[in-house]
């Protein structure tokens, strides 16, 4: 039999196939990013407790009613973009010097010695509990406390100076909305809070390390470095974002 020459495969329709695939991907995918405010929900409490008394100066209540009107600490805000400035004031007023006369949260200044003392104290307490065979949750609680103190120690080491300024532990920003408040307003309040916290941390990061907070976070996301972690922890301790979202009444 004579040898038959192999025919080349016709690749002319390759482009068509590729186009089909391309169009399929164009239709089924989206370009836009998913951006959101990530918040945590408090754990459900099984045992009913009496609410803890909080001083008025420690609360920054941002309220929005059914007509989408805003009120911050009893004052009506017609322009929501002013809220972030108010939040800055809430954090900054007493940062350097405590002044009891104004209505903003006070700061505590913890020295390295106090932190060391507390670490030792909590450590011994934890050991004590373990020896006594206390409830597991109690021991765990002590250990988380210990961890917090160690974190503070690291923060102060990084910050330098003689003490660690901390806003009052009860200082919080609370969002109080009503049933029919639109989501747009809710998102706006969240934006303003985020904006303020970002500004505070960014300024501090610039001052301490000449680095922007956004850059720091991006670096941490990319490399998971210990140094970035320590810096972010410090900023978190200096300007904690304690946001309480109050469930609206029916």
């Amino acid at each position: 039999m004579a040898k038959r020459e192999l025919q080349e495969i016709n690749a002319g329709s390759m482009a068509d196939i590729a186009f089909l695939l391309l169009i399929f991907f164009l239709v089924t995918t989206t370009m836009d990013k998913d951006t959101a405010f990530v918040r945590s929900i408090p754990k459900k409490v099984e045992v009913k407790q009496d609410p803890v008394e909080v001083e008025e100066r420690n609360i920054l209540a941002i309220k929005a009613n059914n007509q989408n009107q805003l009120m911050v600490r009893g004052e009506i805000f017609s322009d929501p973009s002013q809220i972030s400035e108010f939040i800055l004031k809430f954090y900054k007023t007493n940062e350097i010097n405590n002044d009891v006369a104004n209505n903003f949260p006070l700061y505590s200044h913890t020295s390295m010695k106090q932190i060391d003392d507390n670490i030792r104290l909590v450590e011994s307490e934890a050991e004590d509990l373990e020896n006594k065979g206390a409830v597991k949750s109690m021991i765990e609680f002590k250990y988380t406390q210990l961890e917090e103190w160690i974190k503070k120690k690291r923060a102060l080491e990084l910050l330098g100076g003689k003490d660690l300024p901390e806003i009052h532990f009860q200082a919080n920003i609370r969002i109080e909305v009503q049933q029919a408040t639109s989501y747009e307003i809710f998102a706006q309040i969240q934006t303003e809070i985020q904006e303020a916290i970002y500004k505070l941390r960014d300024d501090k990061a610039q001052e301490l390390w000449g680095e922007s907070y956004g850059m720091l976070k991006r670096k941490f996301d990319a490399e998971n470095g210990a140094q970035e972690k320590a810096k972010l922890d410090l900023l978190d301790i200096l300007y904690p974002a304690r946001i309480i979202e109050v469930t609206p009444k029916k």
Partner: peptide, 17 residues
């Protein structure tokens, strides 16, 4: 949010553009 709390799913994200 309340229902998520009920099943102990405690991380919520409010989507915005």
């Amino acid at each position: 949010r309340k229902e998520l709390q009920e099943v102990n799913a405690l991380t919520i994200a409010y989507a915005v553009r």
